[in-house]
Amino acid sequence: MLEVQEIHVAYGQVNVLYGISLSVKSGEILCLLGRNGAGKTTIMKSIMGLLPLTSGTITLNGTAISTLPAHEIPRMRIGYVPQGRRLFPELTVSENIEVGLMTCQEDKATRDWVLEIFPRLRERLTQVAGTLSGGEQQMLATARALCLRPQVLLLDEPTEGLQPSVIEQIRQVIVRMKQEGVVVLLVEQRVDAILSIADQVSFIENGRNVETTDAASLRDDPDKLKRYLGV
């Protein structure tokens, strides 16, 4: 179980998060919804230890991870698919995967496993990541995170600007990870795409989470979406 408790985060002097709390059990998908600039990406980066917390704690299965050095957090098997993919653009597909494998010292079996999930990548192993199509880049970013054999998967707008066929493929991977008991934290703009797979939805507004509800209740009460997102 991943628990974020009352975290406050600032970029330098500028406060961005004001007491965010979240809690996701394994095998559960929590989706963060909110307008641009609400602080969703900042929450993801804070969990990864890429930004210092001003206060609050983050724990994984009861162990505090927010006190660890940033490079040890992914080694707790927390896989990160960042917004905008953020591949290592001049490394090949194979090398990008290798970086993912090194994080938790995973071996060839894991490499085969992720290449089975994304067979397209196997055809592109020697290609430089920056020259892949948008869909392939997203597959690689996801594959790189799966290389950690994650128990937590953070996905920040993984379907941004993708074709429906790729979106579907990413969606299936997310559902599969959920079934395998992974904690999934998902940021997504396209509400329709996630209401069907999310277990909980948390609305983020100006660095605060204003409400967390069951996805099921949202499906019955679309007015709520209008209120928070203006959709």
């Binding site: 890429l50 940033a70 040890e72 960042p82 290592f88 790189r144």
Partner: peptide, 21 residues
């Protein structure tokens, strides 16, 4: 060498994949 090149290209992502930058 791979770790050095990854760090060169995006040190924040290198850190997010366990590299002690």
């Amino acid at each position: 060498g791979l770790i050095m090149r990854a760090t060169q290209q995006d040190n924040e992502m290198a850190r997010a994949f366990g590299v002690p930058v």
